[in-house]
Design a protein around this nucleic acid. Structure first.
Lengths: 137, 137
DNA sequence: ATAAACTAGTTGCGTATGCAACTATATTTT
DNA sequence: AAAATATAGTTGCATACGCAACTAGTTTAT
C-alpha cells in the first residue's frame, strides 16, 4: 500500500489552512467575532448584499450565515432592511459601528497575513494565489 | 480602506481547503468514517502509535482524537494495548478489519486527489506542495 | 389565473470540535 | 524520599456547523 498521508495534498492543504486560520482568528476574536461573523463583515464592507449572496460567495451554508447575521444585528453591527423588489430578500448593511470595527480589524488582518506569508517571496505568494485560483475556478 | 476579501490569502486558502475536503469526504464517508477517523486510520497505516502522537502529527486536539479512537475501537477497526514502558500511554494499531477498510479507501482517496488536482500540471502540483511545506515548516 | 416549481431565509436536530478540568502515571527538583 | 511539575488520555461543557424541513414570497408553465 503506497498511501502516505504526509504527501497527500488535501491533507497538507488542510493543515496549512487550519494553521493560517488559527493565527488569523486571534485578530478578530479580540473583537468577539467568530470567523463567520468576520467574513460577513468583510463581504459587507464591499457593499450591502443579502445573506444568500454572502453564503454563495463564501461557500458557507446559508443557515450559518443566517445565525451569524442574527447575532450581529443584535450587537448593532448590521442592519437589515426589507427589499422593495423582492419580499423574501432583505439586504444587509454594516452600521457605522460595524464599519468602525471592521476598519479597526482590517489593517490588523492584513498585517497578520503579512506575518504568516512572509516566509514566501513576493513571487511565491503570487504563485500560490494563482494555483489556488485555478483550483477554485 | 483597501481590504479586499477576494485577494486575502487566508480566505482563499480556506475556501480551497474546504472545497477539496468536501470532495474527499465523499470517499471516506461511504465507509461511515468521519474526517478525523479517516486521518487516524491513515496515520496508523504507517505504523502503530499513541493517540497523543496522532494528535501532534495531525495538529488536532487530543480530545478529538480520543473520541474518534473510542468509536473506532467499538467498531473493531483499532486495538489499544497498554504500553509496557509508560503506564499512561496506550499505543494503537489497526485491526485486520481496519486495515482492510483502509486498503479499500486509500486507492479511492488517491484517485480523488488526482481528480481534484488534475487542473494543475505536474509541475504546478509540486510547486504547490513546496509552498505549503514552507508555510508549515 | 391557477398550479407547480423555485428561491430567500429561519429553525430544529444531530454531530463535531475546542477548551478546560480532571485522573492517573512519570519525571524532575530539592 | 517527598513534593512539584509534566505528560497521556478522558470527560463535561459550550459552541459551531451541516443537513433537512419549513414558511413565505416569486416566477414559470399550462
Amino acid at each position: 500500500m503506497s498511501f502516505n498521508l504526509e504527501n497527500f495534498l488535501p491533507y497538507k492543504l488542510s493543515l496549512t489552512s487550519n494553521t493560517v486560520s488559527e493565527h488569523l482568528s486571534k485578530v478578530y476574536s479580540e473583537y468577539s467575532l467568530t470567523r463567520t461573523q468576520w467574513r460577513v463583515m468583510a463581504v459587507l464592507s464591499m457593499g450591502g448584499v443579502t445573506a444568500g449572496k454572502i453564503a454563495k460567495k463564501t461557500l458557507m451554508d446559508k443557515a450559518t450565515i443566517s445565525r451569524a447575521v442574527k447575532v450581529m444585528i443584535v450587537r448593532g453591527l448590521l442592519t437589515r432592511r426589507a427589499s422593495q423588489e423582492d419580499g423574501r430578500a432583505s439586504p444587509l448593511k454594516l452600521t457605522t459601528k460595524g464599519r468602525k470595527i471592521f476598519e479597526n480589524i482590517a489593517p490588523k488582518a492584513i498585517q497578520a497575513e503579512k506575518d504568516i506569508f512572509q516566509r514566501l517571496s513576493k513571487e511565491q505568494r503570487i504563485t500560490l494565489e494563482h494555483l489556488l485560483d485555478i483550483l477554485l475556478a
